[in-house]
Design a protein around this nucleic acid. Structure first.
Lengths: 192, 192
DNA sequence: GCACAAACCTAGGGCTCCTAGGTAACGGTT
DNA sequence: AACCGTTACCTAGGAGCCCTAGGTTTGTGC
């Protein structure tokens, strides 16, 4: 019985690819095992259980998102950085719907806190917002609004929640324009 | 063998209650059957399969959301209507996380198009936006932005995605202020 | 070549989904 | 009250998934 050369990392990557192909909710230990031509029981040498496997995919996706966004915003600031951030976020979700769903899956807070990727995503958001010169609590409020809008938009889009009456990309661009304007004129912030 | 008096409606309601209690993803035909003290196979007299059951819960939730929002915005307009709409939306999600998850589950477009509740939710949104006097395509863009933000915010909140550094309700109120301001000054719209 | 660790497998139990056919309950009619 | 037809329930069973335990085989180091 030749060994398939599995590792936890390879198993995770395969699960992530499978998630993009068939949906994160359909990723099973059995399906991943089949993709390697081994029996399901063999995977437990590499991952603890299905939950462990799912968490690994989630953390993998968080890292990929952070990489994508970091690369997109590098050397940019102001509106350019904000739109680059947002477009990288959406592009990732559209290209990797299964990974994106994993990224959005609730993770044990202790696990998330220890994840460099999650921390990095927060830092990237605050760095991007720096150009808007917002103090607390406006800074946190604005960050949450952006995250909510990006996530909500992309999720609705992926779920087919927008009719065909208007080009989805056009509404997205319009939303980014609106958000930029709003960040510049954040209500309750002391006037310039 | 006394009959449990099941109907498709009762089964659906039980599934929805179970979703709120244990999470929509954990609702199974078996679990619902157990809640009635019958065997799993007995449910197939009332629902076609698990997918049918899930779709029924989704449609039930869509109707409840519409009812909640309609009641909240009745007799209101302008900012008051928008915040009432948003607050009703969020309150429903927080009170019924499982039902809300069902509501957000992708539904066959043909099924959704025939659902009075989904149509009604769209109408409620456009009625609410009437006060902002937006023409197309700004009207659709604005509607999508609002839906995205509400959904995104609530989902992140339910998934524990916000740290405790700032009161979640305060950020929500701030977001609604910002959205109201933005709707009044929608970029690209002809000046008043 | 040998010893050891562990990656693989089989076996099996528990759970879920769902179909098919049998039995019993229910409602309507006489 | 009895009878009949319908169907809501049940049992039985097969397929699939999750996961544990123990056996076998593979790969590595000496």
């Amino acid at each position: 019985m030749a060994r398939a050369g599995l590792t936890a990392e390879r198993v995770t990557e395969a699960a992530a690819d499978l998630a993009d192909a068939i949906g994160f909710e359909n990723v099973t230990v059995s399906a991943v095992a089949r993709s390697f031509g081994v029996r399901d029981a063999s995977l437990y040498s590499h991952v603890k259980n299905l939950q462990d496997l799912r968490e690994r995919v989630t953390l993998l996706a968080a890292g990929e998102v952070a990489d994508r966004i970091a690369a997109a915003v590098a050397g940019r600031s102001g509106k350019e950085a904000m739109t680059a951030f947002a477009n990288a976020y959406r592009a990732y979700a559209l290209a990797h719907p299964g990974r994106y769903a994993a990224y959005q899956t609730p993770l044990d807070p202790a696990v998330a806190a220890r994840s460099a990727a999650y921390v990095r995503n927060v830092e990237l958001t605050y760095a991007m917002l720096r150009a808007y010169d917002l103090d607390e609590p406006h800074l946190t409020d604005a960050g949450r609004l952006l995250r909510s809008t990006f996530h909500g938009y992309v999720t609705l889009e992926l779920n087919g929640g927008f009719s065909h009456s208007r080009e989805v990309r056009a509404s997205w661009d319009s939303a980014l324009d609106g958000l930029h304007f709003l960040l510049q004129h954040w209500p309750g912030r002391p006037s310039d």
